[in-house]
Design a protein around this nucleic acid. Structure first.
Lengths: 117, 117
DNA sequence: TGTTTGTGAAACCATTTGGTTGTATGTTAA
DNA sequence: TTAACATACAACCAAATGGTTTCACAAACA
């Protein structure tokens, strides 16, 4: 566990980072097996610098770690960050579920208060 | 269920739409209780047109529905879309878990093949 | 040692984003 | 039937995004 409480800026960065297919693919790959930036870059139809930028966006969102190893930088996907993002969406679900629960409670509690909407 | 198989563009739109705090707030609110665009706009420090644009982004990602009612447009959060987004992240988790499982299997299967990495 | 390889970083560019204002149009209410 | 309200939409703008090329530099190799 690192910081637990995410700011709005943190959440912005996480979803923004996930909103690009190349970056999602990099996360997927490095979650399975770490790779250097140039290894990653080989598989995408863009320059090394472009891939490097994508990695920087992912690192800023803490979705990957960039670990120096000799002249290389090894990229590792961060499963904890994915889990945190999932929990963020889980809160939305809870909010929705909460609405249903309140509605149920209202209807159960006082049937005479039922109104059409 | 609507389309089930999301394209890369669909996923791009979903995460992009969630990468803005105003839009996340609109989703939260309209998941709890539907509201017209002008009702929403009252609570944000920006123009009506700006809120209208945010709603359009959310609608394009299918995170909210825009339902005409008289002269108003009622915005409803779409819990199904949230769930789909959560499942997308769930797949990442599975990928990571799969890596661990394969590693465990490898180590369990043939201890002599263990190597440092 | 010199050369290749891997990375970092700057400058640049087109497009998208997130905001604005202004105008038009449909809908409800007096 | 006006007036007020809710929305739609266009034009505009600054800043961010996603890409490029180029140059610098450190690490590994022949």
């Amino acid at each position: 566990m690192v910081s637990q409480t995410l700011t709005d800026d943190d959440v912005d960065r996480i979803f923004r980072a996930l909103a690009d297919r190349t970056r999602r693919d990099i996360v997927r790959r490095t979650l399975t097996a770490e790779a250097s930036i140039s290894e990653l870059a080989k598989d995408y139809d863009m320059s090394f610098a472009a891939v490097q930028k994508h990695v920087a966006v992912l690192e800023a969102a803490d979705l990957v770690a960039r670990i120096p190893r000799g002249r290389e930088r090894i990229i590792q996907g961060n499963p904890e960050a994915i889990r945190r993002a999932q929990q963020l969406l889980g809160r939305f679900e809870q909010i929705w579920r909460g609405r249903i629960d309140r509605l149920d409670a209202l209807l159960a509690e006082d049937p005479s208060s039922a109104q059409d909407h």
